[in-house]
Amino acid sequence: MEPIRLLEVDGTLRGDPPVDLDETRRLFTAMVTARAYDSKCNAMQVQGRLATYASFEGQEAAQIGSIAALRNDDWVVATYRDAAAMWFQGYLWANLLLGRMGDERGGAPPEDVNVLPPSITVGAHMIHAVGLGWAESLQGSDRIAMALFGDGATSEGDFHEAMNFAGVFSTPTVFLCQNNGFAISMPRQRQTAAEWLTNKAIGYGMPGVLVDGNDLFAMIGVTRDAVGRARAGDGPTFIEALTFRVGPHTTTDDAARYRSDDLVEEWRRRDPIDRVRLYLQRSGGWDEAWETELAESARGAIEEAVTAAESVDPFEPGAIFDRMYSTPTSAMDRQRAALRRDGGDD
């Protein structure tokens, strides 16, 4: 099976572009900004300013392109590797950073942003997207919900339950699987004997679409179709976006143990940002000064977010007892008093 592709690796276009030149420039800027965030996080982790970080380098088109097809008030439920997607749907870089710094306030996006904090358990969150979209339908809203997950998550039992519920109840759900080749060290071939993950969609009575996940335009196109179906009440869609994580699983991982440099180089040649740059150059929508300036302002925006996140004062020690319930229970009150009496470890 051939994945849907609109932009060739050399930037030539097959058919009509899904967005005009201005929008392409906006999305290119978003991808560059996301990569600046990614590279800043890797650097901060080395400096000890962030906890473990999971890079999304190489997956920018899959994330920015799919979110570009959503409406601002649609729900997004994503993983620890989906910061680009979450940000593009309205989550703040400063919140994402705060979360990685070990502060629960990072899990609270602005009030009008319908993005859940990143799911760290693999696979359990797809059914949440089913419930979110279902709730919108029950309340007469046409908001839809998109779940982002990786190839490894398709092996979890909850993937089956989420796909099955979405199919049975025809919920407005888009299942976006970023198949980046490896679940930590496990190659895709060890997750399923199916030739393509899209094969699974058949079993749940929904369309499955195979797409080049490093092609911004193809991602916009297939997600737009899926979102349109969901919003029209025609049910869920499963999208398998073929992509690659250029970095390790997280900053604690040594990817050289399970994959070759040649493979990484091969995928670097299919870089999603380079591809759009080549397209813009062919279309007269790019010049060097413009990219230099946008890269500079992207780095500036990330630095501002870092400053904002690092200037948030730590919680007072007893605040944990205020966060567990709407109003602290008697147990929370007693345990807060015990912590206050004895203090925590230094």
């Binding site: 059914i127 419930g131 709730a135 309340q139 339950e161």
Partner: peptide
């Protein structure tokens, strides 16, 4: 798991 997970999403929305 699907029932509770879907209900969880519903409750949030």
């Amino acid at each position: 798991s699907g029932i509770v997970g879907a209900a969880f999403g519903m409750a949030i929305a």
